[in-house]
């Protein structure tokens, strides 16, 4: 193993890891937004809206994320959507993971005993008040771990945007392989940095989960 080389290139990887972190954070935020909207749609009183929610989930879970990215980044300009690689990466991955998060969030909500909603409605609360003050606080606690699984998947999924040339960890590894012919070292560095990001995130999720647990 070429330690000297590793020491020489690793600052570039740190910079790339920062891009991966930015991608991950923005994708998570967009994913949660899409997930919340998707779940609201899936649980709507209106059949049309429920259908739209289901269609969103089926499309984005039923096709490869890579195809979705290509469609957006390479196909987008053809229909007037012009995005740079980073933007396309965040939007493509975010909307994709949002479909998974839709099901996670919906699952958390429907896991709450229907007696909770009944008790709230019986006291005179509106649908929204019952959701906001009774169902969601309980469901949110249930969702933390499974959303953590989604986030774990999306962090690893950010590697896909190397294919549309976002200079993140995977792309950086490939670029240095081109000039150094040392794939083992390069993929090892990026692998370790992915693991570090995922480890810290996982600890954060576990901490959050413990913190909000109901007595």
């Amino acid at each position: 193993m070429d330690i000297e080389l590793i020491l020489k290139v690793y600052p570039y990887f740190i910079e790339a890891a920062w891009v991966t972190i930015q991608l991950s954070v923005l994708t998570t935020l967009l994913g949660l937004t899409c997930g919340a909207l998707g779940a609201a749609a899936r649980l709507s009183r209106l059949a049309v809206v429920r259908f739209l929610g289901a269609a969103y989930v089926s499309f984005f879970r039923g096709t490869p994320a890579l195809i979705q990215l290509f469609l957006l980044y390479f196909g987008g300009p053809q229909i007037g959507i012009q995005l740079d690689a980073f933007e396309a990466g965040v939007i493509g991955l975010g909307v994709n993971i949002g479909a998974y998060m839709t099901e996670t969030i919906r699952g958390g909500i429907i896991a709450i005993d229907k007696g909770q909603r009944e008790a709230a409605r019986t006291l005179g609360m509106s649908r929204w008040q019952a959701m906001r003050y009774v169902i969601l606080p309980q469901a949110a606690r249930l969702m933390i771990r499974p959303l953590g699984v989604n986030i774990n998947a999306l962090i690893k999924g950010t590697a896909l945007v190397a294919a549309i040339s976002v200079v993140e960890l995977t792309y950086t590894a490939q670029r240095f392989i081109g000039s150094t012919y040392k794939p083992f070292e390069m993929f090892l560095i990026s692998g370790i940095l992915y693991m570090a990001i995922i480890y810290v995130t996982g600890r954060g999720i576990a901490w959050l989960d413990r913190r909000v647990r109901i007595v």
């Binding site: 005993d113 909770q116 019986t122 009774v134 309980q138």
Partner: peptide, 28 residues
């Protein structure tokens, strides 16, 4: 929602809100 305020209901399985204390259950 208005009418239900006048009709109290007690359930077989209590349906207390588990994330709230007794005090908060009543105050909500």
């Amino acid at each position: 929602n208005q009418v239900r305020q006048d009709i109290g209901m007690v359930f077989q399985h209590f349906n207390l809100f588990p994330h709230l204390t007794v005090r908060e259950n009543i105050k909500l």
